[in-house]
Each structure stands twice: as C-alpha cells, then as structure tokens.
Amino acid sequence: MGKQHFRLTKLELLIRTVFLTIGAALVAVALEIFLVPNSIVDGGITGISIMIAHVTHLPLGLFLFLLNIPFLIIGYKQIGKTFALSTLYAVTIMSIGTVLLHPVKPLTYSTFLAPVIGGVILGIGVGLVIRNGGSLDGTEIIAILFNKKLPFSVGEVVMFMNLFILGSAGFVFTWDSAMYSLIAYYIAFKMIDVTIEGFDESKSVWIISEEAKELGDAIMDRLGRGVTYLQGEGGFTGGAKKVIFCVITRLEEAKLKSIVQELDPAAFLAVGNIHDVKGGRFKKRDIH
C-alpha cells in the first residue's frame, strides 16, 4: 500500500494558525516584558540568542530567527514538511513580536515576579505551539539528530544542552541571573506539560483482585468509567487471575483508590500516566 496523505481542512488549518500565532506571541511577551529586561534567559536557541543580543546590542528577534533557520534546514527530512512550516511560522511570529515589544516598558523588575510570571507565560506559549504541531527551538531538532548517534534520549540531550546554556548565563550576566533563569526554565517546563496535557491528565489503572467483579461494578457505577476484564496468570502460583483495566483522569484517582481500599484492601493497584487517549469509550458516562 502506498503512503496515505492526510490534509488539514481549511478550518483546522485556520485554528492551528491562530493558536500558533497566540503561542508565539505569548513567548515574545514573556521574553521582552519579563525575562530579558531582568537578564533572565531561557534554554535552547532562545537562551543563546538572548546572550548574543546582549553582547552585540543587536535586536533579539534577529538572532531568534537566524539561529533557528539552519536547524530547520538540517532537520527537514527528520521532522517533515508540516512540522517544518509550522515551526518556521511560529519562529517568525516570535521574532517579529520581540522586535515590536522591545520598546515597551517591562511590567516588573522584581527578581521574584519576573521569573515566575515570565516562566508561566513562556510555558503556556511554547505549549500552545507544540500542541499545534510546531516548535520554537532548534535544539529539539539537534537532539533528534544526536539521538541516532548517542546512547541518550532526546529529552536527555535537550536537558544537557539547556543546563550548559543556562549555566553560561552566569558568565554573560551574573550568577544570580543564572539561578533566576533556572527557576524560570523549571516553571516554563511544568507549564508546557500542563498546556499540552491539560489539567485533566489521563491515567491508566491496573487492578488485580479476588473481588474483580465487585470492584469493576463499583468503578462503573460510582466513577462512570468503563472497565475491561483481562485474564492473567500468577507468575509464582500459576493460578488464574482476573485483571481490571480502566482509564481515569487525575482528579478521579483519589476516589478510585478509596473504592479499592473499601472493597478489597489487599488488591494490587498500579496507576500510570497516559499522554494520549483516543477511541474506545473513554468519554465519561453520566452518573444518576
């Protein structure tokens, strides 16, 4: 079979473009209104651009655009045309945004508020761009390329590069700036997760219990979630085991644990994070 090509509808393309624009604009606001005026840098190409702009006294947007382009070209085959175009668009909006916002007076010079508020806005902006099929940093592309030749994951390569870049801020600015940059980076990192996954993060649940049927009925009745019964076999005993599998949200985890504790305190319970849920009957049934 040949490759199937999926094209976005005009409405989907418009929605994606709107969110890419909002995300890139938020990053520009975070950089020019909160972080850069307080000598706080971000990780990746953005951090490098901030430091070069500080040393050369040239516009930040110039370096944000120019430094990302080579990595887009290098990684074009790795990331695909749609991702490359979305990234190019987002980077362009971010670069123009920083140039337009540069004359605007910063909202705060507080060493507490700047990294916190700036990190939150930055994380939401980057998360929106990633969620809509783009990126704002060439280091992710570098990490993908290095990952094929080094025994490290993409995340580990990105983390190593960012620690090096954030540490460099101590030499370009001050060591206080480097430490504030780490705070902003951590907050942004967490906000990216929240923006991509949402507050209703899904979790997979595995329960092995002698009271499987009673537990399954309680989960369906009291949580409104569907369950699947699987047949298992004990590794040590060789005995038949009934396994319950279901998917819940993070907010329902505590209630599920209380149900298990109430009906079978001896049950084996495992809960894990899920990044994406599609198909099936995950939509919650109304409880009357």
Rank of each mutant, 00 (worst) to 15 (best):
I69F: 08
K148P: 06
V18T: 15
V41H: 05
L166M: 08
A30S: 10
F19S: 06
M94P: 01
L215W: 10
F71H: 00
K241P: 07
E210T: 15
I69S: 07
G133F: 04
L251E: 14
G232R: 07
L88R: 02
Y229L: 10
I183L: 14
A53D: 00
L72F: 06
F160K: 05
A240Y: 10
M51Y: 01
F189K: 14
I96W: 00
A169E: 04
D193P: 04
V129Q: 07
V227Q: 02
V129T: 06
L14Y: 04
S95Q: 00
G167V: 05
I244Q: 12
L14A: 14
I121T: 07
E262R: 08
K278T: 05
Y186E: 05
A53M: 01
D264H: 11
N162I: 02
G2N: 12
P265W: 10
Y229E: 09
L223M: 10
L66K: 01
T139L: 05
K203F: 10
S177M: 01
V116E: 12
S86R: 02
T139F: 01
A270N: 14
M94W: 03
K203L: 12
E211I: 07
H275N: 11
T249P: 01
M51F: 09
Q231S: 15
A218F: 04
L62P: 00
K255R: 11
L26V: 01
I124T: 05
L85F: 15
I207S: 09
T9G: 13
I93A: 07
T139S: 06
G198P: 02
L251T: 13
S39V: 03
G216H: 04
N147H: 14
V41R: 06
I144M: 13
E32F: 00
L85W: 15
V271F: 05
S177C: 02
V154T: 07
G239N: 15
I73A: 06
V243P: 07
A188E: 07
W206Q: 04
D137P: 08
Q78L: 14
P115F: 04
W175G: 09
S39M: 08
I196P: 09
L14G: 05
V277W: 06
D221V: 15
G170Q: 04
D42Q: 14
L251Q: 14
I79V: 13
G118I: 00
I187Q: 10
A169G: 11
E201S: 13
L100Q: 01
